[in-house]
């Protein structure tokens, strides 16, 4: 159902346990062992950072809203859970996912516009000017996703909660960016959107970064990672938050007590996001690009 996450296809067909998801991926890789060995790729999260940056650049030119970018990211993740990436031209998949996401989020872009922007954005030989390639890839995407195209995002939960929790604008903005970042991980395929929203609020309140932003968050990761996952501890007492901040956290916690949020899931989700910030430091755009270009060119996937 469109507004009810519990009955949605997202929950029924696109929410996996970590084990199932890794089995699905393992199976895909096993079927393509030679390919996988021949063309190594960076960590999935690093690859996601690359995809997201490319998508962001493409979207910016067409003034695409964040929610449509998020939908496109989920489409890409779903698609690559069923199709081996080395069998595709990722640039074409990115552009197609964005084109489809814009239609589904009710901010449609003309297919010609998407193709021409994509050609400008990326070395023109990656995207053929003929719109039919993108149209064909759209069939492929929809088919692999079983026409299940409606995505429930954490933004909505954040929006609904911010009033209840009277969060400051700064905290909301930070929570919003943390939600943006979670699309770089597997979390969209692992946890319900409201858990991500709650996690983002938690992190926004407890890991309040200084001027250095991401850096501050990443450094905190160490303290959280040292905590055993099963001890259910949350990064509440990390670098001595000011008193007011502590009150906000308390408020959030007591509010959570009234609701029925899966605290364990929130803890795991926090760790996933913090480890993303950790690995982010290894990100190298050039490496990602080169590794993608290698198999696309070698296999003629750009033709």
């Amino acid at each position: 159902m469109a507004a009810n996450y519990w009955a949605s296809t997202q929950r029924r067909h696109w929410q996996f346990s970590r084990e199932t998801l890794s089995e699905i991926r393992q199976q895909l890789e096993d079927e393509e062992r030679a390919l996988v060995q021949q063309y190594p790729l960076p960590d999935r999260r690093l690859l996601s950072i690359f995809f997201n940056q490319q998508l962001g650049k493409l979207g910016k030119k067409m003034n695409v809203r964040q929610q449509a970018l998020a939908t496109a990211q989920v489409y890409i993740r779903r698609f690559y859970s069923k199709v081996e990436i080395r069998r595709t031209n990722p640039y074409l998949v990115l552009a197609t996912a964005l084109y489809l996401a814009c239609k589904m989020e009710e901010c449609p872009q003309h297919i010609r516009m998407v193709v021409s922007e994509a050609r400008q954005q990326w070395p023109a030989d990656f995207i053929i000017s003929d719109v039919s390639k993108l149209g064909e890839c759209e069939f492929y995407l929809i088919s692999e996703m079983n026409s299940q195209l409606i995505i429930h995002h954490p933004y909505r939960t954040l929006h609904e909660f911010q009033g209840t929790l009277s969060m400051a604008q700064d905290d909301i903005s930070l929570a919003w960016s943390i939600i943006n970042d979670h699309y770089l991980t597997d979390l969209p395929l692992l946890v319900p959107p409201h858990v991500v929203a709650v996690t983002a609020m938690f992190l926004a309140l407890t890991l309040k970064p200084t001027q250095t932003g991401l850096q501050a968050v990443a450094s905190t990761a160490v303290s959280l990672n040292s905590v055993s996952p099963m001890s259910k501890e949350l990064p509440g007492t990390t670098p001595g938050p000011p008193n007011t901040q502590q009150k906000k956290v308390q408020h959030l916690v007591s509010w959570l007590a009234e609701g029925e949020i899966d605290i364990k899931a929130v803890v795991e989700c926090s760790q996933e996001i913090i480890s993303l910030y950790d690995i982010w430091e290894q990100y190298n755009e050039k490496t990602c690009k080169e590794q993608i270009v290698r198999f696309v060119k070698a296999r003629g996937l750009d033709k």
Partner: peptide
């Protein structure tokens, strides 16, 4: 030719898959 699926078809496919 593939020319991109109309928005109306996209909506109908997505909504019909979701609703019951």
């Amino acid at each position: 030719q593939y020319t991109g699926i109309s928005q109306s078809a996209c909506r109908e496919m997505a909504l019909c898959s979701e609703l019951s």
